[in-house]
């Protein structure tokens, strides 16, 4: 009857404390309870339904760049506050919160890297930073990365994850669409390969600029990809949207991405394309 002795000891709250937070994750695709370490080991893809969880910018770089090869550029570029914008909170406070939360200086990391020994330029967005929104700092970092790629004739790989423009920078954020697209235009003219990878989600201002301009455009499976947000469309047309609307698969079938590539095959596919374009 020794088993019952356990009753005397405190179980529950005290014992649970020893389990670190976030050990179990509920899959957003199939609702299965996943062991977080197992999920990490599987590149944050659900082993049951292959749902692709979002990656942080650093996780993405670890996935794509050869170990230790990523050399960040323009780390010191931060958002300004050109409009002195305040809604419920001042914009600089929102930026600081996002910096603290993500450990990133801005929504995008840019730098030189190697991919299976190919010299490339990388631009990787992080949706966790103010909804992956593109403001002036992002536009500048992307443009400098594209210009570096052009000067050094490195294939340029961009990984997008964004809800669109950063409203708090007003019209200046809109103009980043023109700025980044013009930078891609110069890459095209010089025939430096530019490959755009779309991840969940890629919409609005980012999708309507550099993300749509790749020589080759790849998408992770099941990502939300489109111009207008689903809610905006529903409000405009006053109808429910069909199932599967604005997914990677939808965009592929309408001819706006070249391939859907699972995360496991992403680096290999990129390397294969770079090899075919430059080798």
């Amino acid at each position: 009857m020794a088993w019952f002795k356990k009753k005397d000891k405190a179980i529950g709250a005290g014992a649970r404390k020893e389990i670190p937070q976030g050990v179990w994750v509920k899959c957003e695709g199939c609702s299965a309870a996943l062991f977080s370490r197992e999920l990490d080991a599987n590149q944050r893809v659900c082993p049951k339904c292959t749902y692709h969880f979002r990656l942080t910018a650093w996780e993405r770089i670890a996935l794509l760049a050869d170990v230790g090869s990523f050399e960040e550029i323009d780390h010191a570029i931060h958002a300004g506050d050109p409009l002195g914008f305040t809604d419920s909170r001042p914009y600089p406070v929102r930026v600081k919160e996002s910096q603290a939360k993500t450990g990133l200086p801005e929504v995008v990391l840019t730098g030189r890297a190697k991919m299976d020994e190919h010299q490339v330029m990388l631009s990787v967005m992080d949706f966790g930073f103010i909804g992956g929104s593109m403001g002036s700092a992002m536009g500048e970092k992307f443009t400098r990365a594209a210009e570096t790629a052009l000067a050094e004739r490195r294939p340029f790989v961009s990984v997008a994850a964004s809800g669109g423009a950063r409203m708090q920078e007003g019209i200046l954020s809109l103009m980043q669409m023109a700025k980044t697209s013009a930078a891609v235009g110069r890459l095209h003219e010089a025939r430096v390969p530019y490959i755009s990878v779309l991840t969940n989600p890629t919409t609005a201002g980012v999708m309507a600029s550099f993300a749509s301009l790749g020589d080759v455009i790849l998408a992770e499976p099941g990502a939300l990809i489109g111009f207008a947000g689903p809610r905006v469309i529903e409000q405009t047309i006053r109808q429910k949207l069909p199932k599967g609307f604005q997914t990677s698969e939808f965009v592929l079938s309408h001819g706006f991405v070249d391939r859907i590539v699972s995360r496991r095959q992403l680096k290999g596919t990129l390397v294969q394309l770079i090899d075919l374009l430059t080798g």
Binding site: D74, A79, G80, S136, G139, E140, E169, L172, M175, A183
Partner: peptide
């Protein structure tokens, strides 16, 4: 368009 945008570079 290249010049549009306000950011800091500390």
């Amino acid at each position: 368009f290249r010049a549009m945008g306000v950011f800091t570079e500390a």
